[in-house]
């Protein structure tokens, strides 16, 4: 029972990381209608920046995190300007391939700068752990902080998209780009802003992910990236609560599957559940229903 509780917390914690990454995917998809495959690699860059800040430049953890967020935000805006903006009118497949190109580019830049050897990441949010039930249940500070960060980010983003002018502009652009432009919304600035927020979140996710699973390589971001993308689709791509639910469910299924079914089959289970959900609800759990007009 206590073992179950510990898996539950681990699952929610891992799921929170997926949810934060999935938000980036979901927002970008909602606005630019593109699958940003380079998102997973922005996570990796964020993790490397914070790693360098701590290890080489001896900065305090808080500043390291802020630095990682700043670098990733700028990176997100630059990627959008240089690689995606010229392709606004292009087919979605061309944009997808460009995103893959950007993903390879980021991985290879990381490979050249930091090398292929895995770095062992020193947790930025480790303050010890809480022990309950006579030492049977350990909860690390990483678990707490990841879940807390997820809650804070979700509330902040919901308020942002609901109350602020920029957030409303984002929703308008994702609803109808042409009409939004006619209403005087600066579409390019809105899309840049979306990439900035998504990439900033990716940096946070990178720090949290590597604090919990401390192996850092140029390919660290790709698998969590794919899983978070799955989570975004799972919950209904384009929806903020959908990303939250999708991410947490995915994390829970992965941890529970690895614990109770088989370690090797954990990932297969995650994807199998995704397929079943999509067959029952083809646009994800909270996705909008698409009506087909003839």
């Amino acid at each position: 029972m206590i073992q179950f509780l510990s898996y539950l917390l681990n699952g929610i914690s891992l799921g929170s990381v997926y949810a934060i990454i999935a938000l980036g995917y979901s927002m970008v998809y909602g606005i630019a209608k593109m699958l940003n495959f380079a998102h997973g690699d922005v996570i990796m860059i964020g993790a490397y920046i914070s790693f360098c800040a701590i290890q080489y430049w001896n900065l305090p953890p808080a500043i390291a995190i802020v630095l990682a967020i700043l670098v990733c935000t700028v990176l997100g805006i630059v990627i959008e300007r240089l690689a995606y903006k010229p392709l606004r009118q292009a087919t979605s497949l061309s944009v997808l391939i460009t995103a893959i190109g950007v993903s390879w580019l980021l991985q290879n830049i990381a490979l050249l700068i930091w090398g292929a050897n895995p770095k062992s990441y020193q947790s930025l949010v480790g303050f010890g752990s809480l022990t309950l039930f006579d030492g049977q249940l350990h909860i690390t500070s990483e678990t707490f902080i990841t879940i807390a960060a997820n809650i804070v980010i979700m509330i902040a983003l919901t308020l942002f998209t609901g109350k602020t002018k920029m957030g409303k502009a984002m929703r308008a652009v994702s609803e109808d780009k042409g009409a939004a432009e006619l209403m005087g919304i600066n579409v390019n600035a809105t899309i840049s802003m979306t990439f900035a927020i998504g990439s900033g979140l990716a940096a946070i996710a990178g720090v949290l992910l590597c604090s919990a699973y401390p192996v850092l390589m140029p390919t660290t971001g790709s698998m969590p990236g794919i899983k978070a993308f799955t989570a975004a689709v799972f919950g209904g791509i384009g929806s903020i609560p959908g990303a939250l639910i999708g991410g947490i469910l995915l994390g829970l299924i992965e941890i529970m599957g690895k614990a109770y079914v088989s370690t090797e089959l954990g990932d297969a289970l995650v994807f199998a559940v995704l397929i079943i959900v999509l067959l029952v609800k083809p646009t994800g759990l909270l996705g909008k229903k698409i009506h087909e007009k003839v």
């Binding site: 010229p86 392709l87 460009t98 893959i100 190109g101 950007v102 580019l105 290879n108 830049i109």
Partner: peptide, 16 residues
């Protein structure tokens, strides 16, 4: 592979 990735992006940008 860095050059490969850059070539890929440039080809996609140029062809569109």
């Amino acid at each position: 592979m860095l050059i490969y990735a850059i070539v890929l992006i440039l080809v996609m940008l140029a062809s569109n």
